[in-house]
Design a protein around this nucleic acid. Sequence first.
DNA 1: ACCCTTTATTTGTCCGACAAGCGAACATAT
DNA 2: ATATGTTCGCTTGTCGGACAAATAAAGGGT
Lengths: 266, 266
Amino acid sequence: MATAHPLPGESVKRETVMETISRRIEGLIRSGELRVGSRLPSEPKLAAMLGVSRSSLREALKGLMFLGLIKARPGYGTYIQSSLGRAVGKHFQWMLLLQEVKYLELYELRKILEPNVAALAARRATKEDIARMDAAIRGMKASFDRPEQYMAFEMSLHEELAQASKNVAVEAMLRMMYGALAEGRRRTLYLIENFESNFRRHQRIFRLVSRRDAKGAHKAVLEDLKYAETLLRQDLEIRDNLRTKLTKPELTSPVEKKRPARITKP
Amino acid sequence: MATAHPLPGESVKRETVMETISRRIEGLIRSGELRVGSRLPSEPKLAAMLGVSRSSLREALKGLMFLGLIKARPGYGTYIQSSLGRAVGKHFQWMLLLQEVKYLELYELRKILEPNVAALAARRATKEDIARMDAAIRGMKASFDRPEQYMAFEMSLHEELAQASKNVAVEAMLRMMYGALAEGRRRTLYLIENFESNFRRHQRIFRLVSRRDAKGAHKAVLEDLKYAETLLRQDLEIRDNLRTKLTKPELTSPVEKKRPARITKP
DNA sequence: ACCCTTTATTTGTCCGACAAGCGAACATAT
DNA sequence: ATATGTTCGCTTGTCGGACAAATAAAGGGT
């Protein structure tokens, strides 16, 4: 018959209602009828417009909601919102959860992205950007004894840096990565054995950015990441040693559930 | 009091069923009960297990489907699949659609990511990776007269480079960016006025990677991107001139739709 | 001028039903 | 006995209707 290969390409499946609605809404946006912030028709009306039931429409809208494209509030309506919300990082968080992304790989990605982002920020940050970074730095300095608050301020500093790069694509990428990174935040929290040392490195980065020293900021961020990576690597080795010693073979059985056979009728 | 800031965090809204189910499924994956490739219970059973109706469950599953986490086939079942599918780039495509990402910003991001990816690939590519890259190169050489086929081979070359970096996080980021880039593919297609010149630059990159010259590959990719960026910039200037000459002020009115007032009852 | 209640609208959830698709078991024919 | 067509149960896709919860605007009372 046709091919012996499994033919990885899509098979000839009918278009589902969800895809249809997705395309229709995309068309509405392309034509300019729908903009960011504008309100969608109510679900019954939209369902009538598209010629589908409200149930099917709702499933499609839920999909767009998961993507962060629209936001629905009961009694108020459904609105198109910027997709730069914090839901953007969901993908990466799930990938990390599914063990597809190793934690050290994220640090390699960070070493590629963040130094360049700092360099861009050093060139393009406005006075307001620098003021917000300064606020984050001062917040960090005042939170040596509150680890989670310290981490929150540090994260806001990184987000301000991303915003100061004045590149929305770069900002979205970083936000996504930070979302995945926050997933394992607890793992790295106790790694900061010395908050003052961590603070000094961040303060140095901030000063270089505020002085428009792009190359210096690039170098400082890279050094900071390398240092953090060594800490993480040591921690992973310790954990790995523990795991190999306490191995539990009966728990590692990858039982693959097969489709249960149908019960025969007598 | 707590803080004078507007407190950008979420307000105290009740958790919706969708979020609950999302968390529950996340828990099932964390506990190892669900792995990539394993089958979820059928919708009626799962709804009973979670104590919700099938409708609500389906909406939540639809959200996970949009994220590319699960895949459902009628009459067969719902399975957990790798999230590295081609649906990953949806976010970026939508952002580009919503005019949140400028096209030139994507090139700035490319200039940050791709040279480093090429350097990683030069260090880590296996023989099989290089063989696939060679196939892509040969495909490009044989497609000078078929633009879309040429672009397809060029894209596959870039994907092979990403895969050869042996970093899934980097690969996912690149895949996402290429998805957005493909959105404006037609715009850039005719910019390649000289396919042989484009081919030579790519061939040079491939040779440097196959010879394990990380620094050389880094430099070559950066030069290629700068060249492509100048072409794009010229094109954008031409388009901008046309637009300012043909300006239609009556179309620029950003009419913000307000919620329609309720009709008073006499 | 301020506060409370009412009311229409909108989204969230649930239920029941049927169609379409799939795979395994069964029945039949060659 | 092998091969082929059919039946059957299960699963997802779609539909329609119904009610609850939330929201904002209008209206009324103080």
